[in-house]
C-alpha cells in the first residue's frame, strides 16, 4: 500500500527538509521502518528499540492515535495518511 507520512519540523533535518514522504507498507511499523531505511538518523529519533517508539513520539493514522488502534501493528490501507506528532504542553 502507498501511504504518506507527514514529517514534523523537528525531523525535517533528517529528511532533507521534506515535510511529506511516501512509502509502501502494510502496517504502521512497516511504514516507519521504510521511512527509517530511506533516511539515516531517523531510526534513533523514532525508536527506543525495535518495536518500541520513543516516549514522546505520537503516531496518528488518518486522525486517530495508534494507541487507540493496534499500535505499531495497525494495518494501513492505500491512501492512508500517517502523522508523526511531538507531544504538546497543556492549555
Amino acid at each position: 500500500m502507498a501511504v504518506k507520512i507527514r514529517i514534523p519540523t523537528p525531523l525535517r533535518s533528517v529528511t532533507n527538509g521534506a515535510d511529506m514522504v511516501e512509502v509502501q507498507a502494510g502496517t504502521v511499523d512497516e511504514a516507519l521502518k521504510n521511512l527509517c531505511a530511506q533516511f539515516s538518523g531517523m531510526e534513533k529519533r523514532l525508536y527506543k528499540q525495535p518495536g518500541e517508539l520513543n516516549r514522546f513520539v505520537n503516531i496518528y493514522v488518518n486522525d486517530e492515535d495508534i494507541r487507540f488502534l493496534n499500535n505499531l501493528q495497525t494495518p494501513i490501507k492505500d491512501g492512508d495518511d500517517i502523522s508523526v506528532v511531538p507531544a504538546i504542553a497543556g492549555g
Partner: peptide, 8 residues
Amino acid sequence: HVCEVCFG
C-alpha cells in the same frame, strides 16, 4: 518545540 533528536 521539542528535542530534535528524541522529541523529549
